[in-house]
Every structure is written in structure tokens, then in C-alpha cells.
Amino acid sequence: GFTKEQQRLGIPKDPRQWTETHVRDWVMWAVNEFSLKGVDFQKFCMNGAALCALGKDCFLELAPDFVGDILWEHLEILQKE
């Protein structure tokens, strides 16, 4: 899971503390893990605080249908851990 990747890359547990690099690493991991298609990494050029502050509607505009939902749900789980 993502926990191993977080440990390997030194990504903080709390997504709100992520840098732009951490956000990119997470999106890249999720794309590979969940076989997601059509993700534009440029749209995720922000730090974790900005990403978490978007709200669901704005977040879902960053990625194609269903893909955004998967990313959003995973981000929500990470914020609760």
C-alpha cells in the first residue's frame, strides 16, 4: 500500500503537510496502483494543504470521471489516519 511508499520517500502521514513533490509522488503512485487513465499531472501542481483545501467538486475537476473519485476517496482515508 501507500504506507510503504510514504516510508520509502519520506512523505508525511498527514497530506496537509505534503510538498508539491509529495503530491506528485502520491498521484503517480495512485495512477500505477489503481491503473488510472488520463491523469494530467500538471493539474496537481500544488502542495498538500492546497490540495486538501480544494473541496470535492474542485478536486474532481482535476481528473477524469471515476479517476477523480478514486483519488478523492484515497486522499480522504489518508487525512483520517
Rank of each mutant, 00 (worst) to 15 (best):
C52F: 05
A30Q: 08
L62Y: 08
M28P: 01
L51F: 01
A49R: 13
L75I: 07
H22T: 04
Q7D: 14
R8F: 10
M28S: 14
E73V: 03
K4H: 08
N47I: 02
K37S: 12
K80N: 15
F34K: 08
Q42D: 12
I11D: 03
N47H: 08
L71D: 03
E20T: 12
C52G: 03
A49K: 15
E20G: 06
G48W: 02
L36S: 02
P15C: 06
F2D: 08
G1W: 06
D40M: 05
F59Q: 01
R24E: 06
K37D: 13
M28G: 11
W18I: 00
G38V: 04
L78T: 06
R8K: 11
L9P: 05
M46P: 01
V31N: 05
L36K: 03
L78E: 04
L75K: 04
G48A: 00
C58Q: 15
L54A: 05
G38R: 08
N47T: 15
D25Y: 13
K4D: 11
E20N: 09
N32S: 13
T21D: 15
W29L: 04
A53Y: 03
I77Q: 12
K43N: 11
A49Y: 06
K13W: 09
G10N: 08
L54H: 03
F66L: 13
C52I: 12
E61Q: 10
W18P: 01
L54E: 03
S35W: 03
M46N: 02
F44G: 00
A63D: 01
F66I: 14
T19G: 08
W29I: 02
F2K: 07
A63P: 00
E73S: 14
G48E: 02
A49F: 05
S35D: 14
K37P: 12
Q7M: 15
C58Y: 14
Q17P: 00
D40S: 08
M28A: 13
D25M: 11
G1I: 10
L60T: 14
L51A: 01
G55Q: 10
W18A: 00
N47M: 01
F59P: 00
K37C: 09
D40Q: 12
E20Y: 07
I77Y: 12
G10C: 08
V23D: 01
L9M: 11
F59Y: 01
C45H: 15
W72N: 02
F44H: 01
P12R: 02
L60C: 10
I77G: 15
D14H: 08
I77H: 15
D57M: 08
R24P: 00
P15E: 00
